[in-house]
Simulated assay, not measured.
Amino acid sequence: MSEEPGRRRRGRPTEIVRRPSGQGAPLSHRPSDDQPTSAAILDAAQYVLLREGTKGLTLVAVARHAHVDVTTVSYHFGTRAGLIEALMDRLYADPTADFAERASTLDDPASRFRTYLQGVRRMYEDRTATQAYFEIATLALRDPALRVRLGRLLTWTVAAFSEAIAAQPDALPPLPLAELVYAAVDGIEMHHALVGDSYPTDAVLDLLETLTAPYLEGSEPRADSPTQPDRGPTPS
């Protein structure tokens, strides 16, 4: 199978980029050349999404901002749904794939998780990507086909994250832990986007790292661990 232009595959499961007939061009039907053009089209799609919202995200509008003919957009991405799929990959899957590559060079889970949080901090600094991220999520909630596909994509990203921070290849961290971390990161990102620079992003992420560390080391916090809340005396 040829690599889709403008996307980095790197082990991403193929089922998350396929849609039913008529709802976006299948991956195998898309060309494999001219990656700069595909990247420019995705840049334009993200710009249109942020400026005009999901209703304004049309092939014509994207082609106009990318300075290409609308047939060029169709050639690379098929339909509007296919273009949105590619934008989903850029915003959701590509950061996970990049993290997995960096994590593969590190020996211990704590270092890999710290590298992940460093990437999260960089992501938070990109306000346009954050806004586009949540615009796509909102669109998926209203579109059943996109919701299913984005759900599969999120399932893959969580599983890839769990695998990347595993202490041993055959000893993955509990999936609920990976789900919890991803949910926390999304919530922190939303709060940071809404509150602005006064939000204590670094302190919250540092606390997340502290709370997660015992589980990455393969053991739950002890009953006397300082991370456990003080519940006061036990009622008699």
Score class of each variant (00 low, 15 high):
V62L: 00
T96E: 12
I41E: 10
H29D: 15
Q228S: 09
R90A: 09
V185N: 12
S111N: 07
A66V: 06
G22A: 08
S21L: 15
T72S: 14
H29I: 04
R112G: 04
T14I: 06
G22E: 06
Q35I: 09
P5M: 06
W156Y: 15
R114D: 14
D94S: 12
L139F: 14
R127G: 02
A93P: 03
A129C: 08
Q23Y: 09
T128G: 03
P229R: 04
P20G: 07
Y133L: 14
I16Q: 04
G82L: 01
L207R: 09
H192Y: 11
T96G: 07
D186F: 02
S111G: 10
V62R: 02
L150N: 10
R127C: 00
L177E: 00
S236M: 10
Q131V: 15
T37C: 13
T115I: 05
P13T: 03
L91Q: 08
L211E: 04
D34W: 01
L153R: 11
Y133A: 07
R112A: 05
P169W: 04
L106R: 07
R122I: 01
H76G: 02
L150Y: 06
D206E: 13
L42R: 14
T115C: 15
T155P: 00
R80M: 01
T96Q: 11
G119T: 13
R102N: 11
